[in-house]
Design a protein around this nucleic acid. Structure first.
Length: 581
DNA sequence: TCTATATCACCC
DNA sequence: AAACGGGTGATATAGA
């Protein structure tokens, strides 16, 4: 393959860099090697910083090869270098070749080498070199040489890995994934604007705030010890009050929120404890990766899930924790942010890719769930969300449940309806959308028969024995959705707009406050184009929520919690400032 | 005391 | 046989 690549030059590139929490990467050194000629370039920091352009070509004649290219491309951004036009990311390709499979040594560079029967430097050495880079400068002459050699050893690895993988690559699709890695580098570089002062206050006050909440509600019950809920004390409290409590198969008390909700209906004295548990539910503010410039940045971990979605850390990424914390998002002075998301993305994908005319028509009405009810004959054609809210809710939950292969028992439970009614809803879905069901069945059959399932642009899941058939059935929707958002990220960033963060079916973007409407319109246009590219010309709608400085982002689901926390925090700070009163 | 597993909460 | 897809991560409990 190496000789058949349509490139004059093929460059394997690796950077060592320092990436402090929430900060942009600082390049330390770089090694690049051209495959055919073997020409090698080794550059240490000062020489690197002097270069206005990369020492290798980045136009269409050259291919840029890396492992997890967003890191190298982040260094390009740090150095003010342009993005290469053609990127081949062997990490993305390895993940695509093995999604759904378990690989013996993970999916980092060493794991990929091992998988292909090649060897690299040992993991301990790798770790000590990473530590040396992270320690920061100045480095001794010896350390510099060691870091450069280590950097070159990763280039050696790339040079070995490419021929081993070359025969399995689908180059045009690989380049599309590589193109996304450039978008990832830009998004990781941009980050999400955070109200750093509020975060600091929250970090400082969270523990005492929790204490106050517990004191107030747990008083006289004694269910908490310190800041922790104690199951044994809860059991004792229940026995005292003669409250029977559901148990798990394992014999322990069922402590999930659903159980608490059900029990609170019958025993109102349970309700405050439920609220308290909810308010205290896990949250580690310390881990949120915010740089000194007040921006949340972390690795987006593209292609990490088997459907090809990004999988950033839930604690480091602002979109990971409970939604009320998103109110920490606040545009900087003069700026605005907008959250732009696809409307009913998976329903639309299912409609378009299955070619089910009824489903497509339902999507195009703007309210697919109500349209489903109308098509099924459960609501009149002039029904609205207002006049038929209850019916709409049932058909909505059914349509969403179908995406996950929900069974009638779960649907009945979810909607609090009889099993017969739930069965009837599912039957109506089959009757209304027969073409969708044939398509969905055939996707599962294809997966079982061939052992693989693909998206429009070649992301592939591999089927193992004992695979969950519901997972396979869901794959076309979720994985094509991921494909669509990746394309949108490419289009939007390449057109020069700032994307702060991707969120599975949404983008958080940023722009000057006085131009945000036009920026949003362009982003929506790009997202529609992305949907048409994945869905054979079928456009998906997007909706946008704009927030201007000094307002903060607000998710309706978290509004109440945010205001409770803000008030308690302010009160706690007052007490701290005026202890006598 | 440490690790593995189960359970739970959160996100799309 | 099971019956809600893809995840991360905290915490409690059981077992070595």
């Amino acid at each position: 393959m190496m000789n058949t690549l349509p490139y004059q030059e093929v460059w394997a590139v690796d950077f060592e860099f320092r990436a402090l929490t929430g900060e942009r990467p600082e390049p330390i050194c770089m090694v690049a090697r051209e495959f055919q000629s073997g020409r090698t370039i080794r550059l240490w920091q000062p020489e690197l910083l002097q270069l206005q352009q990369p020492p290798y070509p980045v136009d269409d004649r050259a291919l840029f090869v890396a492992y997890h290219a967003s890191a190298e491309l982040g260094c390009h951004l740090a150095l003010g270098w342009p993005m290469p036009n053609r990127v081949l990311d062997l990490c993305a390709e390895f993940k695509c070749l093995t999604a759904g499979l378990s690989v013996p040594c993970g999916r980092n560079l060493l794991g990929a080498l091992t998988y292909h029967g090649l060897n690299g430097i040992n993991a301990d050495e790798k770790e000590s070199m990473r530590d040396l880079a992270m320690r920061g400068g100045p480095w001794t002459e010896y350390e510099r040489a060691a870091l450069l050699d280590y950097c070159e050893s990763d280039v050696d690895a790339l040079v070995k890995l490419l021929p081993a993988m070359a025969g399995k690559l689908d180059l045009p699709r690989a380049l599309l994934r590589g193109r996304y890695m450039a978008a990832v580098a830009k998004m990781e570089w941009t980050g999400v604007p955070i109200d750093l002062d509020f975060l600091k206050r929250l970090r400082a006050g969270w523990s005492s705030l929790k204490e106050k909440l517990i004191q107030r509600i747990d008083e006289g019950r004694g269910i908490y010890e310190g800041q922790g809920f104690r199951a044994d004390r809860w059991a004792a409290w229940l026995i005292e009050r003669n409250i029977p409590w559901p148990r798990l198969e394992s014999g322990g008390l069922a402590l999930d929120d659903d159980t608490f909700r059900d029990m609170a209906k019958m025993y109102p004295e349970v309700a405050p404890i439920r609220e308290l548990r909810h308010a205290l539910s896990q949250m580690r503010l310390e881990e949120l990766a915010v740089g000194n410039d007040g921006r949340n940045r972390c690795m987006l971990s593209p292609f990490a899930s088997k459907t090809g979605r990004n999988q950033p850390s839930n604690t480091r990424y602002i979109f990971g924790p409970a939604v009320w914390l998103r109110s920490l998002i606040r545009p900087e002075p003069g700026n605005a942010v907008a959250y732009v998301d696809y409307e009913q993305q998976e329903f639309g994908i299912a409609a378009a890719l299955s070619g089910d005319k009824n489903m497509m028509a339902a999507y195009q009405t703007g309210d697919p769930y109500l349209a489903f009810a109308v098509q099924a004959g459960a609501a009149p054609s002039n029904a609205t969300k207002k006049t038929h809210g209850e019916i709409r809710e049932r058909f909505k939950t059914c349509a969403l449940g179908v995406q996950y292969s929900m069974w009638e028992v779960s649907l009945a439970q979810r909607l609090n309806i009889s099993r017969a009614d739930a069965r009837n809803l599912l039957r109506l879905h089959h009757q209304t959308y027969p073409t969708f069901w044939r398509w969905s069945d055939s996707a599962v059959d294809h997966a079982i028969l061939t052992g693989k399932l693909h998206t429009a642009f070649g992301w592939t899941v591999h089927v193992c024995a004992g695979v969950n058939p519901r997972s396979l059935r869901n794959f076309p929707m979720q994985a094509n959705g991921a494909e669509m958002l990746r394309l949108a990220c490419c289009l939007v960033t390449e057109r020069g707009y700032s994307v702060c963060a991707p969120v599975h079916d949404a983008l958080l973007i940023e722009g000057p406050a006085d131009q945000i409407e036009t920026v949003v319109a362009s982003v929506q246009q790009a997202m529609q184009e992305a949907s048409e590219l994945v869905l054979n010309g079928f456009p998906l709608r997007t909706e946008a929520k704009i927030v201007r400085c000094p307002d903060r982002y607000m998710d309706g689901r978290g509004e109440k919690m945010w205001s409770v926390v803000s008030e308690l925090l302010a009160a706690a700070e007052q007490r701290a400032a005026w202890p006598a009163s």
